[in-house]
Nucleic acid binder design. Structure first.
Lengths: 185, 185
DNA sequence: AGGTTTGTGTACCGGATGGTATACTCTTAC
DNA sequence: GTAAGAGTATACCATCCGGTACACAAACCT
């Protein structure tokens, strides 16, 4: 019998989609065993802390992905406008043009928020700081940059909610295009 | 022994806060009995359809509230800018300056979405149409008005997510102020 | 080859879940 | 004053919950 999942990390994508779709409370261990192909024995071997450790691992993976694909370009690209452009491109790819929801947003709205409070707060705080920095380097004055960074992050999250409610992913694409236009023309 | 809840409608506020905070799946009947002071017997007397009917009733109440306090002023106020101003005021009050979350948004993100799909879609579609109309009457050209209406709705929803994640309601207030400024100066 | 780590299947735990059944007590109307 | 219906309390249902225990198998190292 072949192993479907060889390492703990191989289970994370399936776990992520589950938590995105059903939330933390809504995702049951039996759903997880089906989606990952791992029995409870294996799951608790990889994640001794149970469901909470699984969710924390998914959040950490998301954090790492955004750090390398979004935050770093924003901070490191000598051409600030280019870094911002890469951010919009990465965000569009990550959320699949509005067809995928933000796990950090989902967790932030529910009571799960308290459980992962610092992770959730840090995610948006770091993103906001990096974006503010890039906007400043792109020519915005500091206070306007901070305001606009906030507006961009909220716009992205809100567009995901709206796309989902209206079942119309184009809402997300349009929002991304508008924000990019305002940011770097 | 006095009746804490004399009518079905008296249970809706408590139900709303519960669903907002814990989502549909996360809200259990025992939490509901505690929060409303009603035993299961009474609950199923008022809501024969169980938890799903309770959530539907809450959504209907929200819909009605927004219809009278938000959608109607947008459409009916002869002074379009004043109608838009009243919308921002009503929204700020309803979401308590960012301290309260949008149940429609919460339901839209999870798997609950499918259960109440048409209600959720209609809520945003009607709001968007009313706001587009008001913006047009306030001087925006039709396509720009539709775009900006979308941006306003997403901004509101996103700001609620961000306020919650950062535990900083001021994010919501700032967003509302910025949007109002852009809309009616 | 032997033994140890790493991973897996399965039975099981106490408790909570949404929902039902039923017997009861009020209030109201005649 | 009594009958009907509205509203309530309680016990109970099957099912599922997250988590644990433990025996077992494959992979690895020496």
């Amino acid at each position: 019998m072949p192993r479907l999942v060889a390492e703990r990390a191989d289970a994370l994508p399936a776990l992520g989609e589950l938590f995105r779709e059903f939330g933390f409370e809504g995702t049951s261990l039996s759903m997880i065993t089906v989606a990952t192909g791992l029995g409870k024995g294996s799951l608790y071997h990889f994640f001794p802390g149970g469901k909470e450790e699984m969710a924390a691992a998914v959040l950490a993976e998301i954090d790492a992905w955004f750090a390398t694909h979004v935050f770093e370009p924003l901070r490191r690209d000598p051409d600030a406008a280019a870094g911002i452009g890469r951010m919009f491109q990465a965000v569009d790819a990550y959320f699949r043009g509005g067809g995928r929801v933000c796990l950090v947003g989902v967790f932030s709205l529910g009571d799960t928020r308290e459980r992962f409070a610092t992770t959730l707060r840090t995610y948006f705080a770091v993103w906001g700081a990096a974006l503010t920095d890039a906007l400043s380097r792109a020519g915005w004055n500091p206070t306007a940059a901070a305001d606009f960074a906030e507006e961009i992050l909220a716009g992205i999250q809100g567009a995901l909610v709206l796309s989902r409610a209206l079942d119309e992913p184009a809402v997300f694409s349009r929002m991304l295009a508008r924000l990019r236009q305002r940011a770097i023309g």
